[in-house]
Design a protein around this nucleic acid. Structure first.
Lengths: 201, 201
DNA sequence: TATTGGTCTATCCTTTTGGATAGAGCAACC
DNA sequence: GGTTGCTCTATCCAAAAGGATAGACCAATA
């Protein structure tokens, strides 16, 4: 069994792989710190049985990273992993062909059995998805999330519009939505709120 | 060596403990899913050498959780762990007597040596914090600092002018100065820069 | 089927920000 | 004395941001 774990936290990556390799003798676990790195590894190493993708990491950009991987490697089993996920992201993940969704609240033994499940061809859907949905506080829509990412870089509405291929008015619309949900008076305050709330990750 | 890891992600908890226990024979690692649980465990189990606290978890509420633990168990070594932390949180952690700060970008071997360091009585301060912290130290004038404080609250020029008893033009002047010194295009970017550089008090 | 929620766009409008340029008071320093 | 740096203010102007309201599309859902 060969796994590729893509997570930008080296600690999580190392700890997971060492745990899995101990619990499942013969398992080989490779790590990647970004989607790009994962794709590069997949291109030269065709023998991966399962890719575990962290939802919030460089290159993911919502579910775009998953899409990318699925397009280039349609036969590869891909599972998403996340500490905090919105229901639409989870549904979107399955809609894009993911074979499982792993909340980080899973225990390590549950993780192992989930991996076994997925490797055997089943989908793994954690039981507590229905209940653990709304841990978020401020729930952003997909677009708002994207816009927020740019806000956090101090981009102007015009720049954001160009990047996302939208009109500037539309970006303003989303910015207002973000401010409303964060209880902020303006974009700068929204950015600070996001940082304070740890949304900026 | 006895560790208590408090993290609400069971996966992280289990993986870390299994990794540590394998790499450091004789180590005992206990897990807790919240600050409350950690405190409860500490009350009945006095033999913990080091507590590792996740910064973002139930009961932490900023650094309140750390404060609580430090007050009740002043002799206990406590390290904070976080995927993404603001420099002021890191400084605050040390100010409250933490013996270390562990970014999740650490590799697992680095983590182990960090733990050894802390158990031996040293403080562990990751290298990339030192550099980021003291880097350049963009020298602000007294007024610029004051204005920056308000910027970090997302205040408008008009509000800042009222608070500091200045004309709005003058505030603009200082805002421009701040942006120039931080290499920012606008106030929002300046705020993010300030946060990243740890200027945010 | 009707409704809801997310999305995108448009047209107005006001306020805020950012930038340029210029003058003046004040304290520290060579 | 002269210079330098920080401070404050003023008057312009252009660009950006923020806000209101309205119409439209689509997918999921009741």
């Amino acid at each position: 069994m060969r796994l590729l774990i893509a997570d930008d936290h080296g600690l999580v990556r190392d700890a997971l792989s060492s745990h899995i390799e101990r619990q499942a003798p013969g398992a080989i676990v490779v790590g990647a710190a970004s989607v790009d790195e994962a794709v590069a590894l997949l291109r030269q190493e065709k023998l991966i049985d399962l890719l575990i993708l962290d939802l919030r990491m460089p290159g993911m950009n919502g579910l775009d990273g998953l899409q990318r991987v699925r397009t280039e490697f349609p036969a590869l089993k891909v599972a998403l992993m996340s500490g905090l996920a919105r229901p639409d992201e989870i549904r979107g993940a399955f809609a894009r062909g993911a074979v499982g969704f792993l909340p980080k609240t899973l225990s390590a033994t549950e993780l192992l059995s989930a991996i076994q499940t997925m490797l055997s061809g089943e989908r793994f859907i954690p039981a507590d998805l229905n209940t653990a949905d709304t841990a978020d506080g401020a729930s952003f829509t997909r677009r708002e999330r994207e816009v927020l990412d740019y806000l956090l870089q101090g981009r102007s509405n015009k720049e954001i519009a160009r990047s996302l291929e939208l009109e500037e008015v539309t970006v303003k619309l989303h910015v207002r939505g973000i401010c409303r949900k964060l209880g902020a008076k303006n974009r700068t305050q929204a950015v600070m709120r996001a940082v304070e709330m740890g949304i900026a990750s």
